[in-house]
């Protein structure tokens, strides 16, 4: 049993919408970090969000996952059971419960907990045992615990970390920590996985492994949105790319189109001399 295999609905049609972002705006005092962003994310796709440093990509993730409350605009999620839900103003844990899970740019694991426990935490919002259940440890609670342990172990096997199960998270090598973050996010049983620079600081071999892992997750029916600076990874993985600069969306489209888009080239490399003259 693959626990994230439930989200296979995305394969029915290529254009089925998962997330609509309408005119999302985020102000920090007088600074507008996100400026009327519009995006549409389809189910079962790998979407990349790129842009120069300070373009507002991580702010966008933080708005999406409830860490920031957007100053304006709408975030609309089409859930599995075809319910349309607004995500604005929800707390991070509520957003996670609705099926958006994320990783962090600078790794945020629970360092002094074991690898397995890190993943087990991910199951928190999908399980119910309360104080009384914990104290009396009835049949239901024990069964739930066993299920969490087994599923967590399966996820760890899937991302290739099963040999580290009882190791402290802080003792893992860097690349493994990144994968553990992904494993932990997968444990929340998401529809959309948000990866914030998953390949940052990885060596080429680790990046290739990551590439494989992301494709594997996609094939299991999840949608993935990633922020990434490694263009090789972005171009080989993503099916659709959004480009941001100064809080605005400056381009979107298939990777080949983006590569030749003058606005994108301008944002990354600066103005062309010919254009100025």
């Amino acid at each position: 049993m693959k626990i994230w295999a439930k989200t296979l609905s995305g394969k029915k049609s290529n254009m089925e919408l998962l997330l609509e972002i309408n005119s999302l705006t985020m102000d920090f005092g007088g600074i507008r970090a996100l400026d009327h962003l519009d995006m549409q994310i389809a189910k079962g796709k790998i979407v990349a969000l790129i842009g120069p440093n300070g373009a507002g990509k991580t702010t966008f993730f933080n708005c999406l996952t409830g860490i920031y409350t957007p100053s304006g605009g709408e975030l609309i999620l089409h859930t599995r059971d075809q319910v349309v839900q607004k995500l604005n103003g929800l707390k991070p844990n509520q957003v996670t419960k609705r099926g958006l899970a994320r990783t962090f740019q600078n790794i945020r694991l629970f360092p002094s907990m074991t690898v397995l426990e890190n993943v087990m935490i991910g199951h928190h919002c999908r399980t119910k045992a309360g104080v009384l259940g914990a104290v009396f440890r009835g049949k239901k609670t024990r069964y739930e615990e066993a299920r969490i342990i087994n599923q967590s172990y399966e996820i760890l096997e899937n991302v290739g970390l099963s040999s580290f199960v009882n190791e402290f998270a802080k003792n893992l090598p860097y690349g493994a920590q990144r994968r553990l973050e992904i494993a932990r996010a997968l444990a929340t049983d998401p529809q959309l996985l948000l990866l914030d620079e998953p390949a940052a600081g990885m060596n080429p071999q680790e990046t290739d492994e990551l590439n494989e892992l992301i494709l594997k997750i996609r094939d299991q029916g999840l949608s993935i949105m990633l922020i990434e600076h490694d263009m090789r990874l972005v171009m080989s993985l993503s099916e659709y790319i959004f480009v941001m600069d100064y809080g605005k969306k400056i381009a979107e489209g298939a990777p080949e189109k983006i590569q030749n888009n003058p606005a994108v080239i301008k944002a990354y490399l600066g103005e062309d001399i010919e254009d100025v003259t």
């Binding site: 629970f110 935490i121 991910g122 928190h124 259940g133």
Partner: peptide, 29 residues
């Protein structure tokens, strides 16, 4: 002892370790 080794206990430990990550993993702070 039972509380610590339960779903709630794990959530407490996670809260101690990293509050933001804890919330992002779906724990009601």
């Amino acid at each position: 002892n039972r509380l610590q080794n339960s779903r709630i206990g794990r959530a407490w430990f996670a809260l101690r370790e990293d509050e933001i990550a804890c919330q992002a993993m779906g724990i009601d702070k």
